[in-house]
Nucleic acid binder design. Sequence first.
DNA 1: TTGTGTTTTATTGCCTCC
DNA 2: GGAGGCAATAAAACACAA
Length: 525
Amino acid sequence: MEASNELQSEENKSMDKNRKRKLKTPAQVAGLENFYNEHKYPTEEMKSELAEDLGLTEKQVSGWFCHRRLKDKRLMKDEAVANGRQDRSSGVIQDRGSGLGQDSCGSSKHGDYKYLDPKEVESQGLHNNGFSAADIAYGNRNHHTENISGMEDTSSESSSYLQDRLFLQGQDPYDMESSRYLTPNRALPPLNPKSAINMRHKPSGYLKVKGEIENAAITAVKKQFGRNYREDGPLLGVEFDPLPPGAFEGKNAGPVHESYGVANPVLPNSPDISPVKRQPSLSSRYDTYYTKFSSQDSHIEGVDFGSLHDGSGFQDKQDKKARQSMKQRQTFYGNNHFPGRNSSLDLYEDDNGEASAYNSTKNHRICITRGVEGMRSDSTSNQSDHYEENPMIKQTDLLPHGYDNFNLKNVQRSGHVKSKHSNSVRNSHIPVDTEERGLSTRMAKEEIFNGGKKAKKIHRDADGARMLSKEITDAKRTKVDPLHQYHVKQAPIAEIDQRKIQRSGAPIPSSFSEDETADTSSSLG
DNA sequence: TTGTGTTTTATTGCCTCC
DNA sequence: GGAGGCAATAAAACACAA
């Protein structure tokens, strides 16, 4: 009896211990998100790898993915509902929504069939370019590439296009990452035996019946996008704006417009726009996200990865801040993978015509995404101390093949970004612009859907951004890291920053206000 | 500073598939 | 029956407003 009681108490203790929520570090979240973007249903192996890489348990990873899917589902549902109300012809979105909604993993094999999952297809097609922390790890291990193959199936056109684009740019670690998995003909070799096997699998349950149909729909949409991107140009932020309305026939016009409006690159060269200022809502989110993340960067650079979750002191504090912003963004971040990435890529490249800008952005992102891994790579420069904290992290394995360039950059960056300010500044700009575009779309939608609630959130973010902006501004004035300066040059970033001004009540350039207005109006109605 | 609302994390139960 | 997943729930961590 006593023994049992004791045992029970022990269990309870341990339960409590486990029960005690422990927030994942931004790095971990980033890693998870990135991986999630590519693999909604990671295999056990993947999970294991990811868990190891992130310093989490498989259970945690599984749980996280589960919740993440739920979250996605929930968002999609909301979106679908809202879309349904607003536009009946939003077949695409609805399709997505339905796909997600029904994509439930009733079948445990979904993970294996993710190739067929519209969601996956889409995310993969557009996200393959995205950087996945896990990818790095997996890349080295040649584990997963299934997704891409699946992608080729349904969205080979757009996806390949994107890949090509990205590949050509060749500067993007993300791209490189994905490209690494590609065979000379761009086909993805089954790296993982399991994957290969999986590929042979046919979807079961819902996917079995609807997979192809949905894929077709998704593919169609993707193709539409792909064409737009391809033919109409890379300026997703700018030109994509009008496309969605047409492509989606109205329903998305609002959201899309909004999203783009947020990141509207139309004001790239506006001198009036302060780089430190950003738009409140969406941008601020990511802005904050990255900014903070970068603050984590310091964390990343300085830290954290190693401390992935030792959850102690130093990192915890930094994490806390980063998390706050992170949390708010993750939702969107995960969901908007493709838009953000693509848009960012295109925008940077085309808009500025400066690969460097593009690269810088990427690098930045890499830094973030790599949060987990990136940190490691960064750590090589001087974060060893942090890594020491986490024995799970193997610095030697941190650098994925093909990431030499960006890693180097990152390292360099981390070099001068040692100072928190510099970090903030740097991060505040780049990422925002990059991810924001894609994310903004969804965010805008969410705004619409959730109305006040979202507004509140946005406001919250804005506040955070404001706080950051102040910090950033100060930092900028006092110190600007070379890389950062470069980033600052980027008009898009400046625009984004501009939003901050708006939020803070500072004067807003007419051009930007228009954006804002458009954004607002679209979101409102 | 406190209360409230939101988000994230952890746990548990159930379902489906093999 | 085991594995994987979803859904529901509880609780912690945050953010914001009063």
